[in-house]
Nucleic acid binder design. Structure first.
Lengths: 192, 192, 192, 192
DNA sequence: AATGAATGAGTGTTCATTCAT
DNA sequence: TATGAATGAACACTCATTCAT
């Protein structure tokens, strides 16, 4: 073993990440049942057996992807923003801008949004249990008090907002020359 | 008791419709690959073999469903409406009202919208080739001239509009106690 | 479904028994790892999938075979015999005769002995926990008191006895023109 | 420190022997199909790849083991003994004593007997073609003439004898606290 | 016509073998 | 030379499809 312990571990972690990242796209596009391990391996550029060195089964790989889609990074950012002493509409503008940018530039984000939303749909849980939705609803509530956001159930409006982010992610994932979602369109969904 | 020719044909047609209708829901929820014929048959309440008396294969059944999702009934209505001597905003209001109503009451419509949209996404064709989109874009263009619809690429706005209809269909299909989409929300997407 | 409930259940039971019986031979000859499901299915004369209608996995099939090899029928007979008011040597003669006969005529018995013995070897448990061994040891002890059986640890002698039955089973299983074990040879192992 | 040609060759030979010796035990216990190269390598205490520096394939390794189990050392000894001017019963006593001792002390011998016997069973050839059997049969024939050995087919009796040696080897291989086979028990199988 | 047990082609998973280090 | 991560051929298992009833 010519590699050091450290290098070895790093390489394992890299390969694992690579599989997760590439498989995410495949699963997001085709779903679980229409994704064949053989296709997936070819798409990643590795042998079929290699996948099983990092994941016990196709199902475990899929679960890991779902789990990592539900990561808390976004939620933290959103919470931070929600607690800033800013008018709600400014916060919303900031979120919309961020979304426009990341949907355009960050393919991992696109995939994550797609998988996360499909996960939420299938879980059938109330969306209010998801922090992305509840945090945005808080900001919306603030905006309604400030008169800058249209009236209506804040959670319904949050769902509308994130739904449109999902729609844009779907378009980017499937359609070659898609219309990118603009921050303005997103904000318009909520602005009074 | 031997049935008449007519009765016999009618029964066949009824069963075929029943399979199509029930299978639509299953496919819309789970996609092609995650739908097993055995599950499908149980869900319909028939034997597995019966499906094969009406459809040559799982793929053919799925194709029939896709085909029937793409039916021209909606397009005709839309064309008719588009050509009426009405202000665009009135036409849009009418469409939004119709959508609100059918999304609420007509499960077949919900399923049809879901499958049609997924079909469009996967085809990767430009959406402008779909008449639903191009007809609505016409109305939007009219509205922009009349000053009642916001500016922007009409096709992009049509996509936004139908995308939100799709979102609502998804929610109805998956979430028990979902927020129904209101006509007002839909119209707001376009109104200046 | 033209079959009655009863017939249906019977057919299932028959097929299950057939698989168990034919697979026993294959596993006894080749062991677990060298037995391929495809070969097994061909040997039984059914499709591969059919095996999975009756057993969850290759492992479960193997376990069922092992379990059924350990059945208590033989033990009961042996206990009954052990408790008869007969001289030990008469009992031993009877057992030896029975073994000679069944090894010659009953292939299922041959397979059962083979699998049971291999199971006992692998379990590494003391053989004294197996009733076949402990019951025979009782008879041997009786024989030693009566002077008709050679001296020595009764369990060791029982092991010697059953070991030779196993040997004969192996020969019958593998060798076309094998020497059949005679009752006399068996009894000689123990007779003073 | 560059090794001399000689040292190098010696080290290769040592490793090869080590692999053969340790692998023998594994194969004898688990058979071919249930032995994984990865397990085998761990059991030997080397990397998987190392095995392939000494043997072309798993099959070749297994064949080498089988071949070396069939070595002629034992046969030579037996022939030598058979031709000595001794009474048959004395020869048999000598063989039995030797077996008792080696089964007790020499694990390689235990493994060799196990593999050789399984090889003979699977070959389905008549055992008379094996010299171990035919030589012992000669001695038995001599003993029968001398009146010291029971009557019966000499080859059948030789099979009985070696079969019991195999049984004892199996017990030693699998069972922790097994009864060792005594020379007396072995000889009793043949003694008139 | 309707059924569901049986089938085998196709997919998921394992493991003997290779090869970069 | 020795290694074990990577590979893909081979095997276990599933599921769309058939067919006897």
């Amino acid at each position: 073993m010519p590699k050091t312990e450290e290098q070895c571990k790093q390489m394992r972690e890299d390969m694992r990440s690579r599989i997760l990242q590439r498989a995410s796209i495949y699963f997001a596009r085709n779903g679980f049942g229409d994704t064949k391990i053989s296709d997936l391996a070819r798409h990643i550029g590795i042998g079929q057996g290699t996948i099983y060195m990092y994941f016990r089964s196709k199902e475990e790989l899929f679960d890991e992807i779902r789990k990592s889609a539900d990561n808390k990074e976004e939620v933290k950012k959103l919470k931070l923003l929600a607690n800033l002493p800013l008018p709600a509409i400014a916060k919303i503008n900031k979120i919309s801008g961020e979304m426009e940018k990341r949907l355009k530039e960050d393919e991992d984000f696109v995939v994550k949004i797609t998988i996360l939303t499909q996960l939420l749909l299938e879980k059938q849980d109330d969306i209010c249990s998801n922090e992305l939705y509840s945090e945005l609803a808080q900001i919306i509530k603030q905006g309604q008090k400030e008169g800058s956001v249209i009236s209506g159930d804040p959670l319904y409006l949050a769902d509308l907002y994130w739904g449109n982010v999902y729609l844009s992610a779907l378009r980017k994932l499937f359609v070659k020359d898609h219309h990118a979602l603009t921050a303005e369109t997103l904000t318009r969904l909520l602005r009074a």
